[in-house]
Design a protein around this nucleic acid. Sequence first.
DNA 1: TCTTGACTTAAACATTAGTTTAAGTCGTAT
DNA 2: ATACGACTTAAACTAATGTTTAAGTCAAGA
Lengths: 157, 157
Amino acid sequence: MYSIGDIANIMGINTSAIRFYDRNGLLPFVQRDKAGRRKFKPEDLNFIEVIDCLKKSGVPVKDIAQFITLCMQGDQTLQERYDYLDDEEEKLSLKIEKMQTQLEFLQYKKWYYKTAIKEGTEDIHFLPNSRMIDPQTRNEFEEKRKVTADIHELTDL
Amino acid sequence: MYSIGDIANIMGINTSAIRFYDRNGLLPFVQRDKAGRRKFKPEDLNFIEVIDCLKKSGVPVKDIAQFITLCMQGDQTLQERYDYLDDEEEKLSLKIEKMQTQLEFLQYKKWYYKTAIKEGTEDIHFLPNSRMIDPQTRNEFEEKRKVTADIHELTDL
DNA sequence: TCTTGACTTAAACATTAGTTTAAGTCGTAT
DNA sequence: ATACGACTTAAACTAATGTTTAAGTCAAGA
């Protein structure tokens, strides 16, 4: 049996966050002792794992509560629960893909600043013919420049 | 020259969000026409791109404003700006890795429900000897079970 | 000329996700 | 026996990120 403090340690969060989750329907399965204190059973950790995963995946508390509601309804909702997780998997997958696109842009911008630092000024990216001396840097520049051009093409009106 | 509406279309957000960003220091570079309307220059799209990227990477508006402040200070902050983006790249990288861990857990849980649906009940995952008939399913089960065991080992007190 | 649509502001409102506070209840160690 | 730490609640509070509202300005087309 785990206390609310134990669960807070396991999840790496504050006990008041757990009480907040409880208020919002994420923990309908927790039992209480005579004094009214929450007592988590070892099996409850299966729920805690799922809640933790969905939270970390960016799923709103309200949505997680709906999934937990399905869980409490027994075997008749197994397919619904599968479908729900399938949806969340898809969403998370897309989110990761988008994050990777942002990562690539950050890497491009790092190159942008690296070359600017080398030349001592950001102007080289606006006046390509005036200051780019090193031919290797110049080639890198032209190649990367296409990336920005593509982005502009996508986002311009 | 782009109006606030143009920029809203480019970023796929509401014009009031852009005004909010402006109030919070993300757009110190925008000029106004005689009537006081925001006029974005084509070069301003470089800022818009970065802001968009950082927003999508989950960077708080306050932090982005600090970066933009550095941008407005000219070439003397090039190194600082590089270091800032380097930090954000690292953070985003870690975030993506964690997301991938959550994705794997979701995939495991999908398997968990898939097998439960096949047997008609979730009980198979708690009473492994009672209902698991198909030996192939049984083997999959045992293998995946180790995953949960590992997770418990990590999170248990 | 007059209307329409796009813009402007300040200020109020909404939502999400908690955190903090105040007042109180237990079980246990000294 | 009493003090301490961990728990309980309801309610107020905070922070981030916008959205909505109300009142007004302006340029362009019918």
